Amino acid sequence: MSAARRATLAPAVAAVAIAALTACGSGDSTVAKTPAPPPAAQPNSTPAPSTVVVPTTTPSGPADPCAVNLAAPAIAQAVSELPRDPRSKQPWSTEPIAGNYNECAPLSAVIVEANTNAENPSTRALLFHLGRYIPTGVPDTFGFSGLDTSQSTGDTVALEHDTGIEGLSSVVKFRWNGSGVELIGNAPAG
């Protein structure tokens, strides 16, 4: 008997056995004490819906290319092309601290930090168009510490700059204009 068939029969057999044990009393006849074969064991019977084993996991398909993916190989490739951090002289970490990288978005970004043990490592944003790193023609992106997702859209990223001084944080927006990246806004953080 297959494991699936045993798994299907086990709940039915257990239910019949429990019913038989609890139904028997001192005045019951032998016929009443003998349990009937479980319904699933009878020929040409179909198990009750409650005994059907349903898998709890579904097979995973390919990852959605239009979902945010901060582990995308394009990010590590872009980071490897960056010159070292000018302040610490260290390379940049390939693990973003924030971002919304999406290979389908006209503009997305990740923020990386210098690969150093310094207390406040340098940070910078890398901008991507349709999943490809934009190495030139981008305004300065050093010092950003996060991404404001409430102000970011498919063609606009809102990068947060936190100075560490209360009240001096801001959000800077960059937009893909159809041929390049432009700075479109600088406002205090909300």
Rank of each mutant, 00 (worst) to 15 (best):
H129Q: 10
S50N: 09
V110R: 11
N115Y: 10
G137Y: 12
T51M: 12
C104H: 02
A74C: 04
K33G: 09
F128N: 04
N120I: 07
S145N: 14
F142C: 03
R124N: 05
P106Y: 05
T116A: 10
I75G: 08
T51D: 15
P35M: 06
E103H: 03
I97E: 05
A114S: 15
V112F: 13
P38F: 03
T136N: 15
Q77M: 08
A105D: 15
V53Q: 14
P121D: 07
I97N: 01
T94F: 03
P62R: 14
P96A: 02
A76D: 03
Q77D: 15
P38K: 02
N69R: 08
S80A: 15
L107F: 10
A36H: 11
A109Y: 12
V138A: 06
T46C: 03
A48I: 00
A125H: 09
A105W: 09
S145R: 10
S29M: 07
F144T: 01
K33N: 11
P65H: 03
P62N: 13
P47D: 01
P37F: 04
T123D: 00
A32M: 08
L126S: 06
E119K: 12
N115A: 15
N120F: 10
G61Q: 10
P106I: 04
I111P: 10
C104T: 01
F142D: 11
S108A: 13
P91H: 07
T30C: 13
P83E: 13
S50A: 13
T58L: 14
V53S: 13
P91W: 06
P35L: 04
L82M: 11
Y133A: 11
P38G: 12
P135R: 09
N102I: 01
T123S: 15
A40F: 11
N44W: 05
P73Q: 12
K89C: 05
Q77A: 15
E119M: 08
S29D: 13
N102G: 02
A78G: 07
P55H: 08
N117F: 13
A63W: 00
H129Y: 08
T34A: 14
R84F: 14
P86D: 02
P37E: 06
R87E: 10
P91V: 09
R124T: 07
I111G: 11
Y101L: 03
N117L: 12
A63Q: 09
K89P: 01
G61H: 08
A78S: 07
T136M: 09
C66T: 02
L130I: 00
V79S: 12
D140P: 06
T94H: 08
P135I: 04
T34F: 05
P91I: 04
D140W: 03
D28N: 13
T141H: 04
Y101V: 00
A32E: 09
N117Q: 14
G137N: 12
I97T: 12
I134R: 00
Y133N: 14
A36Y: 06
N69H: 04
F128W: 02
Y133T: 02
Q77P: 03
E119P: 01
P73W: 05
T56M: 14
V68D: 03
P135S: 14
D85K: 04
S88I: 02
S88D: 06
N120M: 09
S93Q: 13
S145D: 11
K89W: 06
P83I: 05
E119S: 11
A76K: 07
A76E: 01
P73T: 12
G143V: 08
R132I: 02
P91A: 07
F128I: 03
P139H: 06
W92L: 10
